[in-house]
C-alpha cells in the first residue's frame, strides 16, 4: 500500500487512468485498479465515490445510470469526458515530470 498522502495526491490520476480503458462503475473501478496494480492500490469504496463525484463535478468524467449485465439495481457507469482526457494528459505529464525530477535527484548522488 502506498503512503496515504501519496495515494490521495494521485487519486485523480489513478481514476482518470483507469477510466481511460473504458466506462466502469464504482465497484468495478476499485477492483480493476487493485488488480492492475497487483494489489498495490487498495482504496476504500467510501473514499472512491466522493472522488468520482468530484471529478464529475469538475466535468472530467460523466456518469450514467444503467442496469449492470448481471441485473439488479442500476449502477452509475463513469466514463472520461473530453475535459477528462485533457486533464489526464496533463496530470500524466505532470507526474512524469515530477518523477523524472525526483530520479534526477537520486541519480545526482
Amino acid at each position: 500500500m502506498p503512503d496515504a498522502n501519496l495515494l490521495k495526491g494521485n487519486l485523480d490520476l489513478i481514476l482518470l487512468s483507469i477510466l481511460e480503458q473504458g466506462e466502469m462503475y464504482g465497484l468495478e473501478i476499485t477492483k480493476e485498479v487493485q488488480a492492475q496494480s497487483n494489489d498495490y492500490f487498495k482504496f476504500s469504496l467510501g473514499s472512491l465515490y466522493p472522488a468520482l463525484h468530484r471529478l464529475e463535478q469538475a466535468g472530467q468524467i460523466s456518469g450514467e445510470f444503467r442496469t449492470p449485465e448481471r441485473g439488479g439495481s442500476p449502477v452509475k457507469y463513469y466514463q472520461l469526458t473530453e475535459n477528462g482526457k485533457k486533464a489526464l494528459a496533463s496530470k500524466r505529464q505532470e507526474f512524469e515530470t515530477f518523477n523524472t525530477a525526483i530520479r534526477n535527484l537520486w541519480n545526482a548522488r
Partner: peptide
C-alpha cells in the same frame, strides 16, 4: 447518490 451506492453495495 443513494441509488448509486445501493447498486454497488448490492453487487
Amino acid at each position: 447518490i443513494q441509488a448509486e451506492l445501493r447498486g454497488n453495495i448490492e453487487i
